[in-house]
Every structure is written in C-alpha cells, then in structure tokens.
Amino acid sequence: MRAVIAEDSVLLRIGVVKVLEMAGFEVAAQVEDGEALLAAVAEHRPDIAVVDVRMPPDFTDEGVRAATVIRRRWPDTAVLLLSQYVEERYATDLLAANTSKIGYLLKQRVADVEEFADSVRRVAAGGTALDPQVVSQLLLRRHSGPLDRLTRREHEVLELMASGRSNAGIAAGLVISDSAVAKHINNIFAKLDLPKADADHRRVLAVLRFLDVV
C-alpha cells in the first residue's frame, strides 16, 4: 500500500510518516501544500492521501479543497484529513457523495499510534474513520427526536459506529463483548428505525443519513 502525505508542520509530518511506515505503508511523497499534493497524487496514484486541512498559502481549508478534487478525479485514492479542530461542515461536504474511503481525524489522534494506524488502514481499504468529536458535534445538531430514546451506552456505541469502527473495534473501545455490541447496535437500529446494514461503511452511511448529514 502506498501513501502520500501533505502536511506543512515538519515535526508532525515526520511523526505521521513514521506511523504510516510502521503500519506497513510505503510513503511515496511528502508535500507541504494543496497544489503539490494534487501533483503527487497524479504522479503516484497512492492508495491513500493523508492531508492537513490548513496548509499554505492561505491556511484555511486548502486540504479540504484538495481532498474534494482528489475524490472526484482519482476515486481510487482514499483521503484521510487531519485537522487542528473539528468543523462538521468539512466532514459533511466530503461525506455527501460517498462515505467510503474517507477519514476526518483530529491531529492529536496521531499520538494514539496503533489506533491511528488502524484508521489509516481502514480508510485505505475502503472504510470510514470519523473522529469521535466529529460524531458528537453532528449528534449535537440533531435536536430532540428519537436520539433521546437511546441509553447512554447506546449513545456511545452510536458514536463509535458513526466514526466507522467495526463491531470488534467498538467492543475494544468500550471494553465490552462483541455480542453486547451487536445487541446495542440492533437496539439502536430499531429505535432509530434504520435499515439493516452489515458492511461497516454502509452502516456509517445509515447513521449519517439519520443525522441529516447526507
């Protein structure tokens, strides 16, 4: 698996490269802005591009704009966005067309090396990785309604499910058994009246659709 990385902070870039290599990726290119990222993706056609949202020259949303172009022009390349803070609109814009091969994580998650490596692999393999903070901000937007009927535990499971985790991932995150996770997920789908979905990213889609995101 090959990756390119676009990140203007040298220290963080070195860290991300190390984690990617540890996760078994070959880092084909390291660039510092959106233009160079598009050129690198065109040249290397990587499996995944890890992209900082804020980059030169304007330090606003260069990364998001580059990601939109990548998803349109090179749909085989997955995109994992890294950001200093969560702006749900970036997530919703990117997820609108397609919830597979996309990730949106806070920069500080890179420090949880193994989990970050899992997220990168998952996104590169066609999955989704949304930061828990993204999901909780999306849930915040959804006023009243069926969400209030969920128990606290079901809320937690919903957040992790929406962030793209598999059942095993959710079980590990909450330190409960796989069967308990399956039970909670069934309850959530029943309470929110969602259609059954087995593949992880289709499940994300279902939840996000419920949250009015897509």
Partner: peptide
Amino acid sequence: QQRLVALAVNLGIARAT
C-alpha cells in the same frame, strides 16, 4: 503543540515496536 504531538507519536511508536 506540534512538538508535543511529535513526542507523543515517537513514544507511541516506541511502545508499539
């Protein structure tokens, strides 16, 4: 902030490898 994240990443890699 960047330095601390880099430090945490390095320690995480050390822990994992």
